[in-house]
């Protein structure tokens, strides 16, 4: 929980929403900025609920519930959304599960951004045989059905939150590396890049000072678009018993556990499903809106 500060993922989104509001096209600007503001707002709400609510308000712990209180309906005293078959508070599990899902997604995309981004930029910058070899290796990863690879890795490392993150980076690194490589290739021939090269600037310096700031916004947008996919994949791993191990909650394993009593208590499945869907939809809409803005420029 302490590994990712709760306000970290929130800040960039609020900033983009603010930047859109003061866009020079004033007449219909506020209507246009809605496509960013609404998903960003919903995300802020979900993130706030998952990371702040358990701290501010006192809600029951997500695990170690009392079996005597099992299967309480929603709006029961002390359990707003009821309890599951072992007596755990569902709301608490949803919020803590959301923490796990979002932490994993942020970590996976963060690692993908750093490793994949630099790998792609490096490959494009040096070019030649090294570039070809790196790209072939990425091809191997992409030809591999991503979920199958993640399953195999998660199984061989053993199910845990950290191992889930590493398994999923095999999905995000090659994808981001490709985008980064393409963006760097476009930059490479720009006059200021040629000038930097010809004036004998060291490679790492060119990469850090010239390429990174230019490709970063594009990569971050792409990473945001990928957040939804990662959350879905994490859910899939947990759903198949290879992600976050129970009793600790994640949206995926809540759906998996709920599935066993789906005919009696469909809400046990539908509630984490709804949270998962709203979060992924918001990430997708936000990424899409930012991408549209990018391509319009």
């Amino acid at each position: 929980m302490a590994s990712v500060p709760p306000e970290a993922p929130e800040r960039p989104m609020l900033e983009t929403a603010g930047a859109a509001a003061v866009s020079p096209r004033r007449r219909r600007g506020w209507v246009r900025s809605l496509d960013v503001a609404i998903p960003a707002g919903v995300l802020a709400l979900v993130l706030g609920a998952c990371f702040l609510w358990p701290i501010v308000a006192s809600i029951p712990p997500p695990t170690g519930g009392d079996v005597l209180e099992s299967n309480l309906p929603p709006l029961s005293p002390g359990h707003v959304l009821g309890t599951d078959p072992v007596g755990n508070d569902i709301l608490s599990r949803l919020l803590h599960g959301g923490q796990a899902s979002i932490q994993i997604a942020v970590a996976v995309q963060g690692i993908g951004l750093v490793l994949g981004g630099s790998l792609g930029a490096f490959a494009a910058y040096v070019g030649g045989i090294l570039d070809a070899v790196i790209m072939r290796c990425l091809d191997v990863l992409i030809a591999f059905p991503s979920l199958v690879l993640a399953l195999a890795i998660a199984q061989s490392l053993g199910p845990s939150k950290v191992n889930t993150i590493w398994a999923l980076t095999f999905f995000s690194i090659p994808a981001i590396a490709r985008i980064s490589r393409a963006a760097t290739l476009r930059l490479r021939e720009q006059p200021f890049m040629v000038a930097a090269r010809l004036s004998g600037t060291k490679m790492w310096r060119v990469l850090v000072r010239h390429i990174a700031p230019n490709i970063l916004p594009q990569l971050v947008t792409f990473g945001l678009l990928g957040m939804g996919i990662i959350i879905i994949l994490e859910g899939a791993l947990s759903f198949l018993g290879l992600g976050v191990p129970p009793p600790a909650p994640s949206w995926g394993n809540m759906i998996f556990i709920g599935q066993q009593s789906i005919s009696a208590y469909p809400r046990l499945v539908l509630m984490p499903c709804a949270f998962l869907f709203v979060t992924v939809l918001s990430f997708n809409l936000l990424g899409e809106a930012l991408r549209a803005r990018w391509s319009a420029q």
Binding site: G235, A236, I262, P266, L276, F277, V280, L281
Partner: peptide, 18 residues
């Protein structure tokens, strides 16, 4: 289509089952 792209297939499958 935006809805469909945001819904995980296992989520959708379980909704169908329900």
């Amino acid at each position: 289509s935006m809805t469909g792209l945001s819904i995980a297939n296992y989520v959708f499958a379980l909704v169908l089952v329900v």
